[in-house]
């Protein structure tokens, strides 16, 4: 498929919508299926987590029932690799210290697996903000 074709972009946007739905459902196992096995998440600027640490961190975070809104503002999609810039906001109404809001512009990398499915490989919600 030709890079950046409408079909490829549609697939990626569908993946992002699916991700937001699963994230907002709070189902950690379902969310984890949308990541590659060795995916990297950067939930604090510049600090990466992977493997069991990433899964445990994701599950603990989802247990707080965060609500995500996200908009893809840029997308570059080849047949098996995508780079997205995403404006996002997460509200945690029931956070222990009172309602919390987090926001940022992420720069995320997705890969398409041998099964044809897209997954997050590098989940980088603070983008180029490293501090």
């Amino acid at each position: 498929m030709v890079s950046n074709s409408d079909d490829l972009k549609k697939e990626i946007f569908a993946h992002v919508e699916h991700y937001i739905r699963e994230f907002n459902s709070g189902d950690a196992a379902a969310v984890d299926r949308l990541y590659t096995d060795d995916a990297v998440s950067v939930w604090e600027p510049g600090k990466a987590a992977t493997g069991a640490e990433r899964r445990a961190g994701q599950a603990a975070y989802l247990a707080q029932k965060p609500v995500m809104k996200a908009e893809v503002i840029e997308s570059y999609v080849t047949s098996d690799t995508a780079l997205l810039a995403v404006d996002w906001t997460i509200d945690i109404p029931g956070a222990p210290g009172g309602p919390q809001r987090q926001q940022g512009t992420g720069v995320d990398v997705l890969r398409r697996g041998k099964d044809g499915k897209w997954r997050f490989a590098i989940d980088n919600p603070y983008g180029t903000d490293l501090t």
């Binding site: 060795d38 995916a39 990466a48 720069v107 990398v109 890969r111 490989a121 590098i122 180029t128």
Partner: peptide, 13 residues
């Protein structure tokens, strides 16, 4: 400034 990588994918800033 920073790199994040998996086995076969790398993001460089």
């Amino acid at each position: 400034l920073k790199t994040f990588r998996t086995a076969d994918t790398m993001l460089l800033i």
